[in-house]
Design a protein around this nucleic acid. Structure first.
Lengths: 265, 265
DNA sequence: TATCATTTGTTCGTATGTATC
DNA sequence: CGATACATACGAACAAATGAT
């Protein structure tokens, strides 16, 4: 009289999510369509509402659908074709004037003083040193997509170029101009990763679900004595509905030097 | 009798996740430590085990902890400082020889013929055209981290440079060399976004949870008649424990041209 | 404007399966 | 083998948001 565990290799909610995902990508559900509601899906699949919710949570975290309380579960407009917002991370220069393309500010920047720690400290090579932090909340007027931008000016850099610290909440390109006028040759590296947002980030960025966050650090460095010395660090946190675009520099590899310490180059 | 929309209490599980996240980042729990188990946490917080599970699911998707069935919930080794693997996406050139830094292959590449669709088709500007697809599963020997790499050679490009299609499963840098030898001037753009993995991607990439996936498209283009014509598209899918590094080109902005169509530059 | 049905969100309780020690 | 602890699944109740009446 023992129950047959059905010998299913994968959990039912994943099976269900995979099937629904296939149907969405197959076009059975068009973008903007409402998925059948919890109860109906539970009946047709012969499972409980809870299992349906787990499956839908999977679909949501995959970015295939989004849900609105009181309305239903809607299929995302995803030919996978176009991201909601394209954030251009290119750097342009004409003489000592720089041009960065950024989203418009949503609020006036907040200037604070912080201690460098974590990934930022590692990238700047200045753990436990102090820095001026300029925090901005950016917003794309067309879509309402928000992103958080933080410009970190280490005190060591401000000591070299004091004008940076006087009015730190100017556009980032102005800071680059001041560094150029101080005689520095600037290079740029971007470090990109992703993670799920923290609860407070979900609020400030206006995220409805826990879809991932793109994290990008732009390190502005000067090349001195053949070595790169980091001067500034910008941190950008944007929802994954965005796409970051980089114009990649094709460095000349005449001299074969590999100063990178990365495990896998 | 109007409703106060402001004083909304946040859901308990989010509150709990935020507090636990703060404690982890505060150092109350060290890397490798076991979190108190469901039942104890439920008692101390005065909630049900189900709510504890929701909170822990949040922490897991944030990458702060990971769980092992039968063992417990462990705190990730994350000073937030160093990513597991740094993937160098720089491009180096010496004459007509190119050098790309890639992870070692885990299996011999699989060559198939596909039709361009979705984001890749949009980036190449060739919807519904055919292409040669070379799929590789990369693996970092030190950490075991895996990544999926796909090189797409549109038939239009193969028609211009037939040698590409003859042996497509050579290292990407070899393809660049052939393009260079065909007299083409190459430029590179990377488009980076993130999303949660599909179930099959979780399997092939060996992911234990649904932490995000970094998606990067590298478009190799030639500049002809002042316009960029895409030639190749590489798709890289890597777990978010990785970090992608780009050396950003500082383009000269002497002529102010903005051919980008992006909504928010 | 207010009410109401619909649908998702959150929380509880409970039970069973399964991996680890 | 047994205890522990996470994973999955069912059922139920109420809260909150939405849209229509």
């Amino acid at each position: 009289m023992t129950k047959k565990p059905l010998a299913r290799p994968r959990p039912m909610y994943l099976e269900m999510a995979q099937q629904l995902a296939a149907e969405i990508k197959n076009g059975d559900y068009q973008a903007g369509d409402l998925l059948p509601f919890d109860g109906d899906l539970a009946d047709t699949y012969g499972v409980s509402k809870h299992t349906v919710r787990s499956a839908i949570a999977e679909l949501r975290s995959m970015g295939l659908v989004y849900t609105q309380q009181g309305k239903g579960t809607l299929v995302r407009d995803q030919g996978g074709a176009a991201p909601a917002v394209t954030i251009d991370r290119s750097v342009q220069r004409s003489g000592k004037a720089w041009r960065l393309s950024d989203l418009p500010e949503h609020e006036p920047p907040a200037v604070t003083r912080t201690t460098l720690e974590g990934r930022v400290a590692a990238l700047l090579g200045q753990p436990d040193q102090d820095a001026i932090s300029v925090d901005r909340l950016l917003s794309d007027p067309a879509t309402g997509v928000r992103a958080a931008h933080r410009m970190l000016i280490p005190l060591a850099t401000a000591a070299e170029v004091p004008s940076l610290a006087e009015v730190p909440d100017v556009p980032p390109s102005d800071l680059l101009k001041q560094l150029s006028e101080a005689g520095k040759t600037l290079t740029f590296k971007e470090h990109v990763t992703a993670r799920a947002p923290y609860p407070d980030e979900r609020i400030t960025l206006g995220l409805t679900d826990s879809s991932p966050l793109l994290i990008s650090y732009r390190i502005t460095a000067e090349t001195r004595d053949g070595e790169e010395h980091p001067l500034l660090c910008e941190e950008l946190r944007a929802p994954a509905s965005c796409e970051l675009v980089f114009a990649v520099a094709a460095a000349k590899a005449a001299t074969q030097r590999t100063p990178r310490r990365s495990a896998s180059a």
